[in-house]
Design a protein around this nucleic acid. Sequence first.
DNA 1: TATTTAATATCATATATATGATTAAATGGA
DNA 2: TCCATTTAATCATATATATGATATTAAATA
Lengths: 276, 276
Amino acid sequence: MPTRRTKISADSQITEATSYGPPAAGSVKSAGRVLRILEFFDEIQRDARVAEVAERLAFPQSSTSILLNCLVELGYMDYLPESRSFLPSPRVTLLGTWLDKGPVRNGSLIRMLEELSHKTGDTVIIAARNGIFAQYIHVLQARSAMRFHVPPGSRRLVVWSATGFSLLTACNDREIRGLCTRTNAEAALGIPRIDTNQVVENVGRTRRDGYFFSAGLVTPGAGSIAIPLPEGIDGWNRALAVAVSGPLQDMTRRRAEIVALLNDVVQRYLRPAPSA
Amino acid sequence: MPTRRTKISADSQITEATSYGPPAAGSVKSAGRVLRILEFFDEIQRDARVAEVAERLAFPQSSTSILLNCLVELGYMDYLPESRSFLPSPRVTLLGTWLDKGPVRNGSLIRMLEELSHKTGDTVIIAARNGIFAQYIHVLQARSAMRFHVPPGSRRLVVWSATGFSLLTACNDREIRGLCTRTNAEAALGIPRIDTNQVVENVGRTRRDGYFFSAGLVTPGAGSIAIPLPEGIDGWNRALAVAVSGPLQDMTRRRAEIVALLNDVVQRYLRPAPSA
DNA sequence: TATTTAATATCATATATATGATTAAATGGA
DNA sequence: TCCATTTAATCATATATATGATATTAAATA
């Protein structure tokens, strides 16, 4: 039996957030908060005051105040005295720009998401694999009235979610089965046991169809249509998947339309020239 | 006597790092560390192990280990088991991308810096104003043997540095004088008193010449040539300045050449079409 | 201007984090 | 395989942070 280093760290880091679903707790509180604050601004795309940040992220007002002022001090936030509001500084924009010379950095991935969001009105998600999870690394919230709010950073089991199946299309069956075993071992806390054969089958279907339709697979009442992005899309060969998510009824009805749209935008934004 | 809110928070946040120069302490330790880690990867542009990060950033190894694993947990870092190394995830790339539809986001600012770095071999800096400081929000380290290492986040007095004078070209004399007063009040801890008239004169010269040459103004033995960037370059009207920095002798000798190069790259990368 | 309301900073302290020392694991030779 | 070496995780605890309550400030209104 090979000892797995990974297992150790996973155990120690995942405390009460051991289960899947909602965001990861993350052991260092303010570390996570800083990033959630930056993502919050990413979501609202305007300046915001202490009270608003505190409320939306459910941080205590006093802590939020201290943290925001600390970020100003460090040069990652600007303070706008006239409105007593905060806004990420250009220093943030530069973080991570080097990572990707391709679609992420040049903005075509973002533009693609914006078109998807605009044309569907639904929640649009990019997911990447993180351990046994598919983690939502970027979320454009739905603009429709009836909507599920999906916080960025949310996780779903990679072996049991629409985005997960899409991510797994890049893996062979042996790897997939290994992940199922690992998932059943690590995440087996009240979660129904994952059926390995069914996972392999679902991934296979995703490969054949080019997408996966989830009808309330994780969230009852929610439907998701996910497709894998072309490999190498992010510069270092890490699989990514995009999903459109909304009320199940809605997704079911518009399934064909959304699948067509997804294929279309991927084709237009990500295929043509992978040059800068 | 008007009460200034800003003053209060400045006092409480700036502890022992009250003086200018080296990086700001920032009150929330791990908040700052997270961002310094991301910037570190920005600097080395490859994966790195715990030990290396710990050493280069002078964090304790144990703290570094915990923090990196926490970032993996949160989905901001990828762990590469085969090399036991870490690398920022695509989630980081998306932070702050919305902020700027212009040169920062589309990469032309970055490409401009890269060309500057390549052609001069010297340290290349972008600075933005942060309170009474010009803060280095992005730094490409020199590739020459004899070099000063300039950590990103470093600060200089905006009223007494090459980048500062460049940033102040966007301000009128009244604002500049106000900043001098404020600087003398807030930062007067062993720093020679700033001569307001001389500051106004230096900014004026920067306006006329289009650049400012600093001969060891802050760091003895170091020379800097700074120029203001066109306004609105970052999408929300925040002044930015670019500087090339190196050994004073070197800078003095190549002054004309570097000034010409700076003007040239700004012209080529940032003037043409401010469209996406 | 005085008063009310809303928003944010500050304070003391309970609590979570950061750290040096240690243990455990992985790697590379003999 | 075993040992030496390198690297990273873990532990207990000193220390720094997070927080509810409160004071302060600014804005809105009379």
